[in-house]
């Protein structure tokens, strides 16, 4: 795989949110407005880039048995740094993201990329992979936020849209709207890709829920093939 493919796969073919279904919690929670979606995407991308680079650099040093705790500590360190930076330079964003900013620590995308990619590849590929995945995550968030903010609030990035802002569908910015938009977007993606998701080849091993979840979704797909 050359570096261009490596970069592009995160945006489309292996989009972390819409195809691999990782990091659903922040996706649903912060996609109420485009602004907070961009903020979340940027914060998570920075953490992903830093953690991928460092984990890739240390891949021969970290003992295999304790690798997950090591990754979590590294990731938590970077999240704390990002948290402090956001608090200092963008307090309004800190307010909008709230609890979801520290919760980047347990975002499956970051641990998943560390486990699936960074600990097997060199620093340059890991960095490119992280940038691609980060952009894919941000794009998916912004796409979802666009639907929710335009329909639910009648605005886009704070800009008022004439007819819609007089008749906002408030439910779209609330919890049910998040699930609904996400479900429909995933159905559209499944339709476009013909239902051939590469989830098994990528997603499960990196997800801590794989042991239990694997019995339900992933393995069934595998068996069906």
């Amino acid at each position: 795989m050359n570096q261009k493919q490596n970069f592009l796969k995160g945006i489309l073919k292996e989009n972390p949110v819409l195809v691999l279904v990782l990091g659903t919690c922040p996706t649903l929670a912060v996609s109420t407005s485009v602004m907070s979606a961009l903020g979340m995407g940027a914060a998570a991308s920075i953490v992903l880039l830093c953690s991928n680079i460092v984990i890739s650099a240390l891949r021969n040093v970290i003992p295999d048995k304790v690798r997950i705790p090591c990754y979590i500590v590294l990731i938590a360190g970077f999240v704390t740094m990002v948290q402090m930076l956001v608090k200092a330079f963008a307090p309004s964003l800190d307010e909008a993201l709230g609890i979801y900013l520290p919760l980047i620590v347990v975002n499956c995308i970051i641990l998943g990329r560390a486990e699936m990619f960074a600990n097997k590849n060199n620093i340059l590929s890991s960095a490119i992979d992280a940038i691609g995945m980060g952009i894919g995550f941000t794009l998916a968030l912004v796409l979802m936020a666009t639907f929710r903010e335009v329909l639910g609030n009648g605005t886009w990035l704070g800009i008022k849209i004439p007819v819609l802002s007089d008749n906002p569908i408030a439910i779209m910015t609330m919890a049910p709207g998040g699930f609904l938009v996400f479900g429909i977007l995933m159905a559209v993606v499944a339709k476009l890709t013909g239902g051939k998701s590469s989830k098994k080849s990528f997603g499960c091993a990196g997800c801590p829920s794989a042991k239990v979840c694997g019995k339900t979704d992933c393995e069934q797909k595998e068996e069906a093939k």
């Binding site: 919890a175 049910p176 699930f179 609904l180 479900g183 429909i184 159905a187 499944a190 239902g195 979704d217």
Partner: peptide, 23 residues
């Protein structure tokens, strides 16, 4: 269920309606 909706998409739509009831 329509083919494109099978699996997670319909689960999410169902979750949406469940969450609506909690509102």
């Amino acid at each position: 269920i329509p083919k494109a909706f099978q699996g997670l998409p319909i689960t999410l739509v169902a979750a949406s309606i469940t969450s609506l009831s909690f509102l």
